Structures are given as structure tokens and as C-alpha cells.
Simulated assay, not measured.
Amino acid sequence: MKKQLFSLALLLGLSASFAGASFAADDRPAQGREQRQGRDQGHRRGHGSAQDRQRRTDTLAQELDLSSKQKSKVEKIFQDQQQQMHALRSRAGSNDRSQLREEAKRIHESTDQKLKDVLSKKQYAQLEAKRQERTRQMGSRQHERRGGTDRRDFNGRS
């Protein structure tokens, strides 16, 4: 059950922050904790999502060297994905988790296919490399949160 919840969280996290803030290895100085908390609370209420989507798209456009035509198409793709995920979350209470997970996976795969159609092979490979790096970073952060040690039961098994 924990693995399924983790998989769902990872899938939703990857799809929701497709070109997320972890791409932001940009030149801006780090923001204070209070600013981040306020921004995060805004996300939960649905505020600032268009600005954040625009910032992510701008960052992605810069990192992948997108043309203006590609950038507008990517913006539309991310906007559609965000609307679909929002609709899915609003139905969350009415469906079972496995059905929601499958729907989120379908949305992610659809978005991925649309991006493949818009990006060159080189750009798509760069995007995939960034996704894998973000996944690796998320895994290492979770490992650190657990105290940097493997969880084991009383018999020494993982």
C-alpha cells in the first residue's frame, strides 16, 4: 500500500511539476522560507498557478532552447495538463485510488506524447535527462528525511 501511495505521489508530482522549480538552477538568489511558504499556500488555494506555469515554461524554453512557436505549444500542453489534473483532483473523493492513478498516468502519457511531437529528439532527450535527475534528487531527499539509513524491521530485513 505504501509503495502504491508513493507511486501515485511520484506520478502526480512529476506530472504536476513537469518542468518544475527543480529546473530552477537559474541565477536568482534563494528565496526566504516565508516567501516559499506563502507561495506554497497559494498553490493549495489555486492562486498563482498561471504565473508558476509561465515561469516553468520560460525556464524550460531557455534550457531546451525552444523556438517561440515551440514555447507557445508547450505552454498550451502544460495548461491542458493542469486543467485535466485539476479536474481529476476534484473527482478524487468519488473514485477509488487505482482508477485515479490510472487516469493520472494516462494524462501524463498523453502530455508526454504531445511534448514528443513538439520537441526535437535532442530537446526531448534533454527533457528526459532532467526528469531522471529530478527523480534521483527526490529519492535522495526522501532518503535524507529518513535519517539517511535504510529502514529495517526487527529481523534486519529491509
Rank of each mutant, 00 (worst) to 15 (best):
R106M: 06
K69M: 03
R89P: 01
A104H: 06
N95V: 06
D112V: 01
A87C: 00
S94H: 05
S72N: 11
Q123C: 11
Q83N: 14
M85Q: 02
G93T: 09
R101S: 06
K105F: 13
T135V: 14
S120P: 05
F78H: 14
K105G: 07
L119G: 04
E144H: 01
K73H: 12
S67Y: 03
N95S: 15
K116A: 07
D153V: 02
H86M: 02
Y124K: 02
E128R: 09
K105V: 00
T149E: 13
I107P: 00
A87W: 00
L115P: 00
A104Q: 07
Q70K: 08
E133Y: 04
Q126Y: 10
K114G: 02
D153A: 04
G139R: 04
R91K: 12
R136N: 08
L88D: 00
E133N: 10
Q70A: 14
K116V: 05
A87F: 01
G148W: 11
S72K: 13
N95L: 15
R145E: 08
T149S: 13
Q70S: 09
Q132S: 10
Q123K: 00
Q83R: 06
K130L: 14
Q123D: 03
R146H: 09
Q137M: 03
E144W: 07
L127H: 06
Q84A: 13
M85F: 15
K130D: 11
R101F: 13
R145C: 05
L100H: 08
H108S: 10
S140W: 09
G139Y: 07
K114A: 13
R141H: 07
D153K: 02
K114W: 00
G93W: 08
K71H: 11
E144V: 03
S110E: 09
R134K: 13
E75W: 07
K116L: 11
S94M: 07
R134L: 10
R131G: 05
G147D: 03
